[in-house]
Design a protein around this nucleic acid. Structure first.
Length: 433
RNA sequence: GAGGUCGUAGCUCAAAGGUAGAGCACCGGGCUGUGGCCCCGGGUGUUGCGGGUUCGAGUCCCGUCGACCUCCCCA
């Protein structure tokens, strides 16, 4: 094999693409019901945008971005996530003047230079959802509910199955706000300083850079130290505590199961208060399918007005890995096969076949024609391989009579039918069944 | 970025240092007016790539690229 795709970048062949398309269609249908507006933002942004939003000392910015200089020596970065770009869009286009809340979503590839493994690619697709303009937990609950709805949407027919009911689990936490978060940070710093040499090497570095990340370290030594600490909720201010209490009550009100995870933290600096992750089963080490939270200060920090916001991102490939085993392959077959296959018996029929195919396509039918001199047997074999439901046989005899032979490939039946009656008949079958 | 497992035909996988194979798929034919089934024929290959050891390497060694797993990190 001469060429291989770049490490961590993959092709989507038709069978894979239709799965992607199917999931996107389901997600979009739900997003529309919540009145989210689809937008598109560039894949490339100035590096500075990500440094300012995600945080200069985060791992993502420090070692995972595709950053390079263009021909004008300007530093550019392939987006590792979409929130920063959406915020830039809101500010640059003055969208913050519009009625609140602003509700946007975008679907597209993100890029992170990490070691690839199952459920982790260097180019991966996200459904990114953002809501701007409100501080209350009602919007958070609605957003979380919508996220879960999207994730479960491909499995709607199987929703009674116990295994499927628990395919995704919601974890929540609050990081506190600008008032109370520093207290917890200081507490972490002072109490972990004493046991510093018991922590792993990376955590000793985290102590300097981002002490919150120590909380979700998997190293057992670090975990024993972490267990000794006071949990984060002891440090929340009154407002943050109330906010989180209301959030939990609302989740219960909607019968949404959740797990409180006081050690849940995020790899991006911009989050405040509520954060959440939805984890999927069967993914191995990379089990977070959806993650998000509140980022009230970000727009302001990027030079816009104060506009509190919440959002999440779904990793489409991970989502697909979770649910694909439960999906019926038949669901996708239709997207790949023609509705009508036209079998032309001999070169003399090619012109008529071309005309007929165009007429059927004008009538919104999906049509395949082979302009090849093959036996009827061979042509039917082709139609069978493509899983075409109907075959139109067009030979010398039919053309003379102004008719075609319409064959049903599932039933094996066939009838001779005039050209005038053909389109209404096929429409009845495929378009208004 | 660290450690580990693996890499043979389009796909799934054999070949335990001695002639590169099977099933499925694919192509041609039986079969120019009827698909699925069947029969006959065809191996379609730079054994990921590059070196080395050896009389001889798919097999052993080194490097490299890629996939997967763990760590890191994250969607």
């Amino acid at each position: 094999m001469k060429f291989q795709s770049v490490r961590g970048f993959k092709d989507w062949v038709p069978e894979e693409f239709i799965r992607y398309e199917h999931l996107i269609d389901l997600a979009k249908a739900i997003l529309k019901k919540y009145n989210y507006q689809e937008v598109k933002i560039p894949i490339l942004e100035k590096t500075e945008l990500f440094i300012r939003s995600i945080g200069e000392v985060t791992d993502i910015v420090q070692k995972e971005t595709y950053t390079f200089q263009d021909r004008n020596q300007e530093f550019l970065t392939l987006r590792p996530e979409a929130t920063a770009g959406i915020c830039r869009m809101v500010i640059e286009n003055g969208l913050f003047m519009r009625p609140k809340p602003l509700k946007f979503f975008t679907i597209g590839p993100m890029f992170r230079h990490e070691r690839p493994q199952k459920g982790r690619l260097r180019e991966f697709y996200q459904i990114d959802v953002e809501l701007f303009g409100n501080l209350t937990p009602w919007y958070e609950v609605e957003l979380i509910k919508m996220g879960l709805k999207i994730l479960y949407s491909p499995l709607k027919d199987l929703s009674e199955d116990e295994e499927i009911k628990n395919l995704f689990t919601l974890e929540i936490n609050s990081l506190g706000c600008e008032k109370c978060r520093p207290n917890y940070k200081n507490y972490l710093l002072s109490s972990l300083k004493d046991s510093q040499n018991l922590l792993c090497n990376t955590c000793q570095q985290r102590l300097e850079r981002n002490p919150f990340r120590i909380l979700d370290c998997k190293n057992p030594n670090c975990q024993t130290e972490i267990q000794k600490l006071e949990p984060i909720h002891k440090f929340w201010c009154e407002d943050c505590e109330l906010h989180f209490k209301e959030l939990k009550e609302l989740l219960e009100f909607l019968d949404l199961k959740y797990v409180l995870n006081p050690y849940l933290v995020r790899g991006l600096d911009y989050y405040t208060r509520t954060i959440f992750e939805i984890k999927g089963k069967g993914l191995g080490a990379q089990d977070t399918v959806c993650a998000g939270g509140r980022y009230d200060k970000l727009l302001e920090e990027l030079g816009g007005p104060f506009l509190p916001a919440i959002g999440f991102a779904i990793g489409i490939e991970r989502w697909e890995l979770c649910i694909s085993q439960y999906l019926n392959p038949q669901t996708f077959l239709e997207r790949l096969s023609p509705q009508v296959f036209i079998a032309l018996l001999g070169r003399e029929q090619f012109n008529e076949g071309l005309k007929l195919a165009e007429a059927l396509r004008e009538a919104d039918l999906k049509v395949e024609v082979l302009y090849e001199e093959k036996s009827l047997k061979a042509l039917l074999r082709e139609a069978d391989k493509l899983s075409s439901k109907k075959v139109l046989i067009l030979g010398e005899e039919e053309i003379k009579e102004g008719k075609v032979l319409l064959k049903d490939m599932l039933q094996g039946t066939q009838e001779k039918i005039s050209l005038e009656k053909l389109i209404p008949k096929l429409k009845e079958e495929f378009i208004y069944p």
